[in-house]
Design a protein around this nucleic acid. Structure first.
Lengths: 335, 335
DNA sequence: AATGGCATTGTAAGCGTTTGCAATTTATTT
DNA sequence: AAATAAATTGCAAACGCTTACAATGCCATT
């Protein structure tokens, strides 16, 4: 295994007997090169096994063909599906993806964005339930376009792609109300987060209002997003006399479901459940869990496509994209 | 929003009245700088909002503080947990992660590795069930250390961290045999892949042999790794008269379980199931699925730690790391 | 055959850092 | 106070590529 001091553009130029510029031109597909010399250059590149140094290229051209993705946790199925959508279209446009996990910690989010900026990424896709003010500040200070995916910016200053959370929750709550429930619990993350307080809760209240049911604060729950949290909150939900619940996280929903069944409730006859993220989790359980249907992959893909346009200085017609959602009726609801 | 032509090292040098070299030294924590000037430089950096350009730095120093991670699919919970382990220790050592999905396609794996090389990553972590010969070739041609995580290289030429797949499968199969089953099916991925043919199958046969049970090829199944595949293969498994199964994928296992229950089998009384990846899926179902326990996060973390050493030219004592595995007995097995 | 115009190629100045080495300052010895 | 050692700093050459701009070559025109 020899020291692979890989060939440089100089080497191939020298080999062919042309200037650096010419080699650079053929490497970059620039048209103004005679066919015959192009061929010679290509041959030399082949023989020398020349691979352009992307770092040098980045320094000279001020483009790194790399984007940054800031997300809460790769391990979270919801976000990883967005990430996959992002990655696929990023590749399509020949961008690489620099990935950062933040666990929704504003401090780490800020660091991540700054770090990506110093790495000179051409653009950033940001995911997270809430856009901290500080984070938003450093984002807008970055010299590269940023688009939000599956995240809400209450001030709508940043381009973003989402579903209509208010409408989605409203529909979900409305669906169980229509099935005869008048005490439906809702479990979300911290209410301070806009996506919970401003969107989910608003949708919930709208559905209640439409059915002329008074809002009862005791039916409002806030948990971590994991299975154990579902198990725990279930008991408290039961205590309120609720007969249906709409949750923001699939694992939580399943935790609730399993707890309830263990405690003699039949699902969906005695208790209905609707969750929000439509991940694979909703499919593998029995019964399968009814969920708001989100085009997760597409949210990522569209966000990335949008970013490519931004990076290309193209004009964007709509900056606040709302993708259609559905209600996937499965086994935890009647009808 | 002014054009943020961010300050360069030159700007701060000029501002303080020192040379570039000095600024560079303080930025890099080099000791040989007088305290007073260090302070002045730091102040200027603060005032100008100077952030080192990592690309320029990379070109000059030939280190990018970036590593590449090649994986089948972020969306796969098994791999995403490894990725999280990798990312956490990468951050700990101040490396960024360039992520690539390959869907286990050797062509894309090769492209990914080459691409990462041209981006001058300092190291690569490779994940995937099988190491194609071509891929292995391009890997060994790369001028950066590579370590495998959760992947087997039959020729053991590359550093890797794994569990002992042979032993793990043997134990799982042995466990159901001990419970009285003599017809235990095994479902894996393509047998051509070493991890299946060489490891899983070998472990299976060892367990049989130990119990003096003849190998019956009809009990060997190969599927895609998803829930639907489990549903499908279940019928065929049932037809063989098998009364237990060991699978390589959690979703497949759950597909099998649900199919069997729908067809009147009681789990685990009539049929036992053990799966291999111990993802969250095994927890949310009822019954919960018995699984080989793998320290997924740790596999990633240890692999990354190993990579840091390699990148640092430190000597590695053991290059083929085997982490301990367990058998997580849950609801799909007796005992 | 001289002229103009386009296609092709070369020149060289960056891009923003790091870093070996030399130069300068400051501290220590005697 | 001179001499020597040690600590700070500056110089300038890389790093490998892109890209205005200039230079050259080639062809058709007249």
């Amino acid at each position: 295994m020899q020291k692979k001091n890989s060939a440089t553009i100089y080497d191939v130029a020298h080999r062919v007997g042309v200037s650096l510029a010419t080699v650079s031109r053929v490497v970059n597909g620039n048209s103004n090169v005679r066919d015959s010399t192009k061929r010679k250059v290509l041959d030399a590149i082949e023989e020398l096994g020349y691979h352009p140094n992307a770092v040098a290229r980045g320094l000279a051209s001020k483009k790194t063909t790399t984007i940054g993705v800031v997300m809460p946790d790769v391990t979270d199925v919801y976000y990883s599906e967005l990430a996959r959508g992002i990655d696929d279209v990023a590749n399509m446009y020949h961008y690489d993806v620099l990935l950062t996990n933040t666990d929704e910690d504003p401090v780490r989010e800020t660091m991540a964005v700054n770090n990506l900026a110093s790495k000179q990424v051409d653009g950033i896709i940001f995911m997270g339930n809430e856009l901290d003010h500080e984070v938003l500040n450093t984002i807008s200070g970055v010299n590269a376009p940023v688009v939000l995916a599956g995240s809400v910016d209450s001030e709508k200053r940043l381009p973003s792609v989402n579903i209509d959370y208010v409408a989605a929750i409203k529909e979900a709550v409305g669906a169980v109300i229509k099935n005869g429930h008048d005490r439906v619990a809702i479990v979300t993350g911290p209410v301070e987060h806009a996506i919970n307080g401003m969107h989910r809760l608003v949708g919930y209240k709208m559905a209640l209002e439409e059915a002329q049911i008074d809002f009862d604060e005791t039916l409002l729950f806030s948990t971590h997003q994991d299975y154990a949290a579902g198990l725990q909150v279930a008991e408290r939900i039961l205590a309120t006399g609720a007969t249906a619940v709409v949750t923001y996280d699939d694992e939580v929903a399943i935790g609730i479901m399993n707890y309830l069944r263990d405690h003699g409730k039949r699902i969906p006859e005695d208790f209905e459940i609707i969750t929000s993220n439509d991940t694979k989790f909703t499919i593998v359980t029995r019964p399968q869990v009814t969920s708001i249907g989100q085009p997760k992959y597409d949210i990522g893909a569209v966000a990335m496509r949008m970013l490519t346009k931004l990076m290309n200085n193209e004009v964007i017609e709509v900056t606040q994209v709302k993708l259609p959602h559905t209600l996937e009726r499965r086994g935890t609801t009647l009808n």
